[in-house]
Every structure is written in C-alpha cells, then in structure tokens.
C-alpha cells in the first residue's frame, strides 16, 4: 500500500480541516491514524481492478419538486442563531489580510 502516515501528513490534514493541534496531540493522532490505516491494509488482499465503485446504496436520480412556493424559515429566526449579525447578514472577522 502506501507509506505510513507521518506527523507532517497529520499536520497538513489538520490545517486543511481547520484544526490546530498541540505537539502532544500531533504525536498521539499520528499513531492512532496509522493504526486505523494499517487495518485498512487488509483491503490490499482483494483484486479490485474490475470492480466499479459504489458511492451510495440507492441508485440515485435527481429529484425535482413542483415549482410551488411553500413555507420557508423565518429570516430573523435563522439569523438569531448566528454568533454575530449586522443588517440581516452574517458578520465575520476580516477575511483578507489573513495571518497565514
């Protein structure tokens, strides 16, 4: 299969997933993820060359609904759940000029 997952790999996926890890966590997660991926190496025994992948248990087709206006969520109720709101919009800290 592939080489074992390294602390560098784990640091990279943590960054992709927007998680920050301490050095101890990085070490522990690396060992645990390697264990789990090692177990998945049992799949190497299978000949899968001519097997099609399955993404979903149902043969999904796109579902359309009738173009009729139904009840929708109340805007104020939805906005009330947000940590910060201004002028009926979600408010976030500055996006440009990020520190990394």
């Amino acid at each position: 299969m592939t080489e074992r997952i390294t602390p560098r790999d784990v640091a990279h996926v943590a960054e992709l997933a927007r998680l920050s890890l301490t050095d101890d966590e990085l070490e522990a997660f690396t060992v645990q993820l390697a264990d789990i991926l090692d177990h998945a190496a049992d799949l190497d025994a299978l000949d899968l060359a001519d097997v099609a992948p399955t993404a979903h248990p149902l043969s999904l087709v796109n579902v359309f609904r009738a173009d009729v206006i139904g009840p929708t969520s109340d805007r104020d109720e939805v906005l009330a759940a947000a940590p910060e709101v201004e002028d009926a919009q979600f408010k976030v800290p500055p996006v440009l000029g990020e520190s990394r």
């Binding site: 997952i5 790999d9 784990v10 996926v13 943590a14 992709l16 997933a17 927007r18 998680l19 920050s20 997660f29 645990q32 993820l33 789990i36 991926l37 976030v92 800290p93 500055p94 996006v95 000029g97 990020e98 520190s99 990394r100």
Partner: peptide, 28 residues
Amino acid sequence: PTSGDMHTATRTAGFGDEVKRRIMLGTY
C-alpha cells in the same frame, strides 16, 4: 482577528478528539 483564524479556533475548541480524529482521517 481574521476569519481563517476564527474558523480554526472555533473548530479546535468545539470538537472532541474522536470527531477530530475522523475529520482528519477522512480528509487524508
């Protein structure tokens, strides 16, 4: 101070270890 850092700080504080483990495993 920034949105990117806010996302990371929020997710780091909000998720427990098992959830983090699976998010990283899946991302990998």
